[in-house]
């Protein structure tokens, strides 16, 4: 099983990182994330105290918006090309394939955000302690964001209006991650990290099954 999944994982990761076959690569959400962090000081003015008080929350909003960006390229091209049908003929279930894709998506989306967060923290005048909390929060929250992203991508893969719907469907589902992620930044809010991890785990547990049901539904 692992021997059959490994090449698929490498392919998913290469496509998501590099961007090919009509997909933008990992750079697109990353640049978007940094662009939001850069725009915010223009909008509220460069007052360092205000920035450091609100900046960590802005990083979370930027991460959420960046998660919406790649939705229409996560699953749709492979459904369109019939790859999931080919995999199903070879006896690979959609659940397993989507688990692989969630991991690949997290590496191509979550890890770059973790690496870019210090840069955003510099733009938003965050101190070391705040940055550490943001990094912990993103580390625990981005797997959940990746799982929800893949689910929504699978739900909209068979629809012609899918790309436009992705954001509307994803936002209400990702709000708990934002609440606990940003909530953990308040003084004494470290407990939010545990709840954030819980939300991520729920999303990771539900996502492969919901997404697989959606992909199978596109066959009818």
């Amino acid at each position: 099983m692992i021997a059959r999944l490994w090449p698929i994982f490498r392919r998913d990761l290469a496509l998501l990182l590099r961007g090919a076959q009509g997909r933008g690569g990992a750079a697109l959400p990353l640049l978007f994330f940094l662009a939001v962090a850069m725009l915010y000081p223009f909008a509220v003015g460069p007052d360092a105290r205000l920035l450091s008080r609100t900046g960590a929350g802005v990083i979370w909003v930027a991460a959420l918006l960046a998660a919406i960006l790649p939705l229409d390229r996560l699953v749709e091209p492979d459904v369109e090309a019939g790859l999931f049908d080919q995999w199903a003929l070879r006896g690979l279930s959609e659940e397993v394939l989507l688990m692989v894709r969630i991991v690949a998506h997290w590496i191509s989306f979550g890890v770059p955000l973790l690496l870019a967060a210090p840069l955003a923290a510099g733009l938003l005048s965050l101190d070391g302690g705040q940055l550490a909390m943001v990094e912990w929060g993103l580390l625990l929250g981005t797997p959940g964001l990746a799982a929800i992203g893949v689910t929504i991508a699978a739900l909209t893969a068979g629809l012609r209006a899918g790309a436009a719907l992705g954001g509307l469907l994803a936002i209400p589902l990702t709000v708990p991650l934002l609440i606990f992620g940003a909530g953990s930044l308040q003084p004494g809010g470290e407990g939010g990290l545990g709840l954030l991890a819980a939300c991520s785990l729920v999303a990771l547990a539900v996502a492969p099954f919901a997404g697989a049901a959606a992909i199978r539904a596109t066959r009818e």
């Binding site: 689910t151 739900l155 068979g158 589902l173 539900v206 959606a214 539904a217 596109t218």
Partner: peptide, 16 residues
């Protein structure tokens, strides 16, 4: 096209 059942999947996910 098909794909009316994806709506049902979202209905169940949202029940959380």
């Amino acid at each position: 096209g098909g794909a009316s059942r994806v709506t049902a999947v979202f209905g169940m996910v949202g029940a959380i």
